[in-house]
């Protein structure tokens, strides 16, 4: 129900469906049939959780090789990939514009620009300062290529759904769920119980071995660690993708949590000192 950008669901039916469905309190909270959402224990959960950088790097690979044929990362620039706390951050390159990964990824995309000499519209390889370019020239073109459905942009998708990371993970896996008889699919629609109503216009995007993972070198406190390539199962690719999209939606999470820890320790000490001051100031006063 969350992204009802299906041609068949025009506003009238949306309103009707909304009043019937009623189950999902928030976008993506639903699910149909016997499917039960799997709640994964993500590395970034909890007060001290961090992103798994190797997984997020593989997640970017999955995005680039699979998702990016339809979905944009609208609010992400290439340079963001090399920011502190980002999957491709390198200590030697505090300015992400110099980061070799970032430069390569940017150059891998074509970006529309204006030739400053003659004003012609040209395409040139991307630079780190560019934002991820749109996949389709406009929404109408995107719908036309996708059977009427508009592929949502993915840079904040992990926040735009209730329990976003679990939602994305389960959405990728739930294609294999058994379709109940009462769900009728029209051509161009697929069964996916994570969607409200169980219908989705996106065909199962992942299959085992779809991407070829390589070993990844990750910097950890100045030391280079080599993470061997895992098997590219649907589960593995899905959870890698979640790591990447979770970072993309909340790139300052690690900074936020560490700032929070210091702030709360400071406030607790302050509270204690103020409480002792209070007790002292009031020590001879009955109240």
């Amino acid at each position: 129900m969350a992204f009802m950008k299906l041609k068949t669901l025009i506003i009238g039916s949306v309103v009707a469906a909304a009043s019937v469905a009623g189950l999902a309190f928030a976008a993506g909270g639903g699910g149909t049939g016997d499917y039960h959402m799997e709640h994964k224990d993500w590395s970034f959960n909890g007060a001290f959780g961090k992103y798994d950088r190797a997984a997020a790097q593989r997640g970017y690979q999955v995005y680039r090789e699979v998702c990016s044929s339809c979905h944009q990362l609208k609010f992400l620039a290439f340079r963001h990939l090399g920011d502190k706390g980002a999957p491709f951050y390198l200590e030697d390159f505090p300015n992400p514009n110099d980061n070799p990964y970032v430069k390569n990824f940017a150059a891998d995309w074509n970006v529309e620009d204006i030739d400053s000499d003659n004003g012609d519209t040209i395409e040139r390889p991307g630079i780190p300062a560019d934002y991820f370019p749109p996949i389709f020239p406009n929404d109408a073109a995107a719908r036309a290529s996708n059977g009427g459905a508009l592929p949502p942009e993915l840079s904040v998708i992990a926040k735009a759904r209730t329990n976003g990371p679990d939602y994305i993970y389960n959405l990728m896996l739930a294609y294999s769920a058994h379709k109940p008889d009462d769900v009728e699919l029209t051509p161009g629609l697929y069964y996916n119980p994570v969607m409200d109503g169980g219908k989705i216009a996106m065909a199962a995007p992942l299959s085992d071995g779809l991407v070829e993972y390589e070993a990844i070198e990750v910097e950890d406190h100045g030391k280079i660690k080599t993470i061997p390539a895992p098997e590219a199962t649907v589960e593995q690719m899905s959870s890698d993708l979640v790591q990447f999209l979770a970072w993309s939606a909340d790139p300052k999470m690690e900074q936020r949590k560490s700032t929070g820890l210091m702030t709360i320790i400071y406030l607790l000490i302050l509270s204690l000192l103020l409480f002792l001051s209070y007790k002292r100031v009031w020590r001879n006063v009955k109240h």
Binding site: A2, M4, V14, A17, A18, A24, A26, A160, A249
Partner: peptide
């Protein structure tokens, strides 16, 4: 907050709730 507010406003599409 509400997850839907991370979806850019779309006057053509009413949220379910």
């Amino acid at each position: 907050g509400h997850a839907d507010n991370y979806i850019e406003a779309d006057p053509m599409k009413t949220p379910p709730h």
